[in-house]
Design a binder for these strands. Structure first.
Length: 565
RNA sequence: GCCCCGAUAGUUCAGUGGAUAGAACGAGCGCCUCCUAAGCGCUAAACACAGGUUCGAUUCCUGUUCGGGGCGCCA
């Protein structure tokens, strides 16, 4: 917050033996105890006195600047109370002045980010688990754009490989294949490959033809993968997820840059052809410690390339774009693989992208697997959520047009799933329960949208200009107003923490907290029927600022808010 | 077997080297002549276990247990 630096300076100015790092500001456990806490443990140790004595000494000797109204020692802490009028006015003015940029630190100005995420195999409609990657990546991209970075979002289209080969084999035998049928076809193709070795072998043959550039085969692959990709993108678009560039895996076969990578591996004695004719990397020559996972196959005996080959070239490509931050969002099942890739890249003198891992979303019945077909599809979830929400909106606003109701229902659905997924830190397994996700009560996306709708309702009813804030007339009269101001003031810190961690979960939890704090204010502090004009105007501005702050946070999460709901 | 994650209320999740560990769902009891009850208030309920570092550990380190992921021609 605004005054932290000056508080620390005030303390160390008073005690020559202290340095800024000795003062670690905190927050007292309750509002009645103060706004800022200075723990006296470290200063006490340096001055060789008891902590509670040190706290009392600071209370008497330190003279704080005018933003601190009082300082009282409480055991081993010195608790400070802000001058609510002075500090509150400055906070509110800063928020309204910054507007859409409120909370942004500008750390990314003049810098570029390349982020790759989602990159689902083009085989079927995405399930909720796959969506986690998309939402994590999309929100990171939004966070970084918010911070001022020039962000480019990439999607790696895995339009090759065995799984796709099998899918192509079946799909191209059928007439009029649609995206909706693809999941069933894919599951069937995998089952058939399990049961029928001859069929599986035909899949490999198809791959060889594909790599050799056979036009007819390429055309078949293209038709199927493009149908899948476009279908997937449509679902992801409903979730507010979008991409700037699509990089197709197939362009990286027979890449002229490959020999340089092989040469680098030769130079380290790390590549060999095994007794059955495969090209294999021995990672132990590149510093890999364990026996398990030591060998990394680049090419099959029949000469066709493995995914790793293409991935190496893709990494090379991305590195060549010279971004300041190069990120990829990957499932935790890719950890070892990414580590292996990084070793090979390192041998070739190329830094690997920063990997952000996320764990699976599980169903209560177990893990979601497209191959097995036991999934909750994103599109089904969104449909159900929209339908439920639309019923409620219809009940509440019978006069709204069908279109308006649909817009609101979609916003509610998107907020529900994006918030539920993003508030959990990526490393955790999350358990997805459709029924819970479809109940819009409690700590949910819809709760926050509802909060925004209530604010807008107040602002709508006040159909005049709000007079400019006057420093003289400004007053914070209730704890709820003060809590709201203090909470809004935290956004810049939350954004910068999220930026450091490359993790948007703190933003999500902050947005929820802010909605709770606003709701407390809403219930305790009448706005339009406030006791006097100064309070009325101040609270209107508070509403504006709360809406702005919440919108900014939700914007990073890719959640848009409705005018009413 | 080895490597990487995780473990907080009945459940799903937050959070923190420092004061009294927060929500929500579920359970119980209340609140709409009052800016939207998709809301609010109150009650009951948790840091897996054992050591260590520290003035102070739920947080950092080690071990154990349990859960997830991974470990050569899937991507």
């Amino acid at each position: 917050m605004l005054c932290y630096e000056s508080i620390i300076k005030s303390v160390i100015d008073c005690y020559p033996e202290l340095v800024p790092e000795d003062i670690q500001l905190g927050t007292p456990p309750a509002l009645e105890m103060g706004d800022v806490a200075i723990p006296a443990f470290i200063p006490a140790k340096k001055r060789k006195v008891a902590p509670h004595v040190m706290a009392q000494d600071m209370a008497q000797r330190v003279s704080f600047d005018e933003c601190v109204a009082t300082a009282t020692a409480s055991g081993p802490y010195l608790n400070l109370f802000f001058d609510r009028k002075r500090v509150g006015f400055a906070m509110l003015r800063d928020i309204l002045l910054a507007g859409d940029c409120w909370g942004a630190g500008g750390s990314g100005r003049g810098k570029r980010v390349l982020i790759e995420h989602t990159s689902i195999n083009p085989n079927a409609s995405p399930h909720v688990g796959r969506g986690r990657c998309a939402m994590i990546g999309d929100s990171l991209a939004r966070l970084m754009r918010f911070e001022g970075y020039d962000v480019e979002v990439h999607y790696y289209v895995n339009d090759m490989g065995r799984q796709i080969g099998l899918l192509v084999l079946v799909a191209s035998e059928l007439e009029g294949v649609t995206f909706d049928r693809m999941l069933d076809i894919y599951v069937a193709a995998n089952q058939r490959a399990k049961d029928d070795p001859e069929f599986a072998a035909r899949g490999y043959e198809l791959l060889v033809k594909m790599e050799a550039g056979d036009p007819e085969t390429r055309e078949k692959f293209y038709r199927v993968t493009e149908l899948c990709l476009q279908g997937q993108l449509e679902v992801l678009r409903r979730l507010n997820v979008s991409y700037d560039c699509f990089d197709h895996e197939s362009v990286y076969v027979n890449d002229p840059r490959w020999p340089a990578i092989e040469a680098a591996l030769e130079g380290r004695g790390a590549i060999f052809t095994d007794e059955e004719g495969r090209r294999v990397v021995d990672l132990s020559r590149l510093g890999y410690g364990a026996e398990e996972g030591r060998y990394f196959v680049l090419r099959r005996a029949n000469g066709s390339s493995m995914y790793g080959c293409r991935d190496l070239l893709y990494s090379l490509d991305k590195h060549g774009r010279n971004a300041d931050i190069n990120i990829m969002v990957l499932g935790e099942d890719h950890k070892l693989y990414a580590q292996q890739l990084a070793l090979i890249l390192d041998a070739a003198g190329i830094p690997a992208p920063e990997a952000i891992y996320y764990s699976y979303i599980r169903l209560s019945q177990g893990i979601m697997s497209t191959r097995e077909g036991n999934v909750v599809l994103l599109s089904d979830f969104l449909d159900q959520a929209s339908a439920i929400s639309q019923d409620r909106v219809t009940e509440q606003f019978p006069d709204l047009s069908e279109d308006d109701r649909r817009v609101i229902a979609d916003l509610v659905a998107v907020s529900a799933i994006r918030f539920a997924v993003l508030r959990v830190k990526p490393a955790k397994n999350v358990i997805f329960d459709l029924e819970t996700a479809l109940s819009f009560n409690g700590d949910t996306g819809p709760y926050m949208l509802y909060c925004c709708a209530r604010i807008r309702s107040i602002l709508r009813k006040w159909d005049r200009e709000i007079p400019d804030l006057s420093r003289e007339a400004f007053q914070v009269t209730t704890d709820q107003e003060w809590m709201l101001l203090k909470t809004m003031a935290q956004l810049p810190k939350v954004v910068s923490d999220s930026m450091i961690q490359h993790n948007c979960a703190p933003i999500a939890n902050y947005a929820l907290e802010l909605a709770h704090v606003f709701t407390a204010f809403y219930h305790e502090c009448p706005v339009l029927t406030a006791d006097n004009e100064a309070t009325l105007h101040m609270r209107l501005r508070l509403c504006e600022a709360a809406l702005q702050t919440l919108s900014n946070a939700l914007g990073i999460l890719g959640i848009d808010t409705p005018e009413r709901m």
